[in-house]
């Protein structure tokens, strides 16, 4: 049985092809302006990766912001359910998923059976998302992908108290003018992110193990800062950005199996 999961986010689109539960193809592209085309392209690239064409697919689940725009999906499921499903499949001990994407962030509480118990989302505010990191990297004239490593070098992080990205940026500029080192400011930014995420996450019952998903999970500074806040180690999967697509593909497999019965 070959199935696919396609996650069309606001910044990136990902697809995973599963064959009897094993990943045989995957892809990741920028979504751009057109979710429908991005979804199709992501799927085709993943099929190419698996050396198959779409006739091989028995079932396709679409998820993410652009899930409604693709016509090829057999079903649409929200990314909340998909992230939970994917995380639980890889790590049965997971009870909390923290997903930090380009433009939104969410925390999902998962039961023993892998089902979603509760969730909380923040899409109004950039603080705590990839966008926030981009703005800060730009303000400090540092490469985005170096931000995390630099933050780990600090011995005394500068306090950044603003909750708003715009205010925080202004604070950063003030700190630079005061002569505070970039390393300490960057560490302060990572602490600020962790505080925001923590404040959002504790609205749901947060339990170990915690798994982080989404592109921001590649930032070791954020991971470390969150570990400090939650006082526990956080699992970061090998491919954190693909968790939604993986979960969608697993659900596709489950749906198809139950249809056959």
């Amino acid at each position: 049985m070959i199935v696919a999961g396609v996650d069309i986010g606001s910044l990136t689109a990902k697809a995973i092809i599963l064959s009897d539960g094993k990943t045989i193809g995957e892809s990741l592209i920028m979504t751009g302006h057109n979710s429908r085309i991005a979804g199709r392209n992501a799927l085709e690239l993943a099929l190419k990766d698996a050396k198959l064409d779409d006739s091989a697919l028995s079932y396709i689940v679409a998820t993410g912001y652009g899930r409604l725009s693709v016509e090829f999906a057999s079903e649409q499921v929200t990314e909340i359910t998909c992230h939970a499903k994917g995380a639980h499949a890889l790590y049965p001990e997971v009870r909390t998923v923290i997903d930090l994407g380009g433009q939104d962030s969410k925390a999902i509480a998962i039961g023993e059976d892998g089902k979603v118990v509760d969730f909380v989302m923040n899409e109004k505010c950039a603080a705590g998302t990839g966008r926030f990191l981009e703005v800060m990297a730009s303000a400090l004239e540092v490469e985005l992908k170096e931000l995390g490593d630099i933050s780990l070098q600090s011995k005394s992080p500068a306090p950044i108290s603003s909750v708003c990205t715009v205010f925080a940026e202004s604070e950063v500029v003030s700190r630079v003018a005061e002569g505070v080192s970039k390393v300490d400011i960057i560490a302060g930014i990572h602490n600020a992110i962790a505080s925001r995420i923590y404040a959002m996450a504790v609205r749901i019952p947060v339990r170990e193990k915690i798994v982080m998903t989404g592109g921001v999970a590649y930032n070791v500074g954020v991971v470390r800062a969150l570990e400090e806040r939650f006082k526990t180690s956080i699992i970061v999967p090998e491919k954190p950005q693909h968790m939604g697509a993986l979960g969608a593909a697993i659900i596709a497999g489950e749906r198809f199996s139950s249809l056959k019965k």
């Binding site: 108290s161 603003s162 205010f167 202004s170």
Partner: peptide
């Protein structure tokens, strides 16, 4: 709540 305050 000092978070709502911008001194500058």
């Amino acid at each position: 709540d000092s978070r709502a305050y911008s001194e500058a």
